[in-house]
Structures are given as structure tokens and as C-alpha cells.
């Protein structure tokens, strides 16, 4: 895989930027590849549209924007509506299945869609905040973009001290679900 472009979309407070940070960090620091992260968010801190663009590549990355992602990760209905049309044909859609309904919007041809009840998993783990870690694990499991080891190191390196175990459990929950997941 020479170059993978990922867009993660959701709402402020869902950990969208942190998810992008972990993917980028896993690739560029713990997997020896190149990565760029571009973030866009509204002026409000919570509840507004928020998205991260991550490019992972074997060579240095010039143009850093993601226009037609290979992988689209969506955590909100609005993000799905906004970004689904831009998904590359034959690309992958990873979505939070309790927040997003595929019926809302058609997908480009050949797209494989994978759903996960990530919010519920996070709640079962005791903290709704770890939703983003479940999603990152899901991305790791479905895409096999990088080694699990690289992702886990990036998780540990990115979360507040003392919360590593919880976050790793959330990551693994998403990862295991992802490895066994079949597209709808």
C-alpha cells in the first residue's frame, strides 16, 4: 500500500482529532512510515462538526489534503451525509452503527461498509469517552493498515497517564470486532 488517505468525521467531543492523531502517530513514529494529519473544526468546542484528514504513505507526503479518502470513518449522521459522496469508489466506510444509517445516503460504487456499535461498547467499558479508542481499534482491525503493536504504542503515547489500560481495552475491543467484521 503506497498511500492511504483517511477521513474521520464526527462531532466535537467524540475524539475525532485524537483518533486521527493516534493513526498518524502509529504510522509515522511507531511504524516507520510517513503521515500527515489535518484537522478542521468549528468554533464551538463541543457538538459541532469536526473532522480529521490523515494520509499514511511510504514516501514523504506533499499535498496533505484528503479529497477522496480510501477510508472514511464516520461517527455522526452529518459527517456521513457530508463525506460519503467523496469516498473513493471501492473504498471502505467504517461507521458507528447506532449513529449512522446507511439508508440516509447512497455510497459510491464498490464501497465496502463496516458497522460497529462503538458507543455501546464504550459504555460497556464504563466510559463513553473511549468511543474514539474503540473506533481506532476498529480501523486497525478492518484495514490492517499498520501492525497492532504500532497502534497500541500510539494509544499509550496519546492518552492521559493512568488511563492507558482502559484505553487499550477499548482499542482491543474495537480491533477484535474489526478483524471478525464482514461488510454489510
Amino acid at each position: 500500500m503506497g498511500r492511504t488517505e483517511i477521513r474521520i468525521g464526527g462531532l466535537g467531543g467524540q475524539g475525532v482529532i485524537l483518533s486521527g492523531m493516534i493513526v498518524g502517530k502509529a504510522a509515522s513514529i511507531f511504524a516507520g512510515r510517513h503521515a500527515t494529519l489535518i484537522q478542521a473544526f468549528g468554533p464551538e468546542a463541543r457538538g459541532s462538526a469536526c473532522s480529521a484528514q490523515v494520509t499514511v504513505a511510504d514516501a514523504p507526503i506533499g499535498y496533505p489534503y484528503v479529497k477522496n479518502p480510501d477510508v472514511l470513518v464516520v461517527l455522526s449522521r452529518d459527517a456521513y451525509a457530508q463525506f460519503a459522496p467523496s469516498l473513493k469508489p471501492d473504498g471502505m466506510l467504517l461507521y458507528e452503527e447506532e449513529m449512522v444509517s446507511l439508508a440516509d445516503h447512497p455510497l459510491p460504487p464498490g464501497v465496502k461498509a463496516y458497522g460497529i456499535p462503538a458507543t455501546r461498547f464504550a459504555e460497556e467499558l464504563g466510559r463513553r469517552l473511549v468511543l474514539s479508542m474503540v473506533m481506532v481499534g476498529f480501523v486497525a482491525g478492518v484495514t490492517r493498515l499498520l501492525t497492532v503493536d504500532a497502534f497500541e504504542k500510539a494509544v499509550v503515547d496519546s492518552v492521559p497517564r493512568g488511563t492507558e489500560d482502559l484505553n487499550l481495552r477499548a482499542f482491543r475491543k474495537g480491533y477484535e470486532f474489526g478483524t471478525g467484521c464482514v461488510p454489510v
Binding site: M21, S28, A35, T36, L37, Q39, P64
Partner: peptide, 9 residues
Amino acid sequence: EVIGHMTER
């Protein structure tokens, strides 16, 4: 703004 807010290694 792009360089300022873009994250890389």
C-alpha cells in the same frame, strides 16, 4: 495556517 495546524513527525 496549514503548516501551523498540520501534524507530522
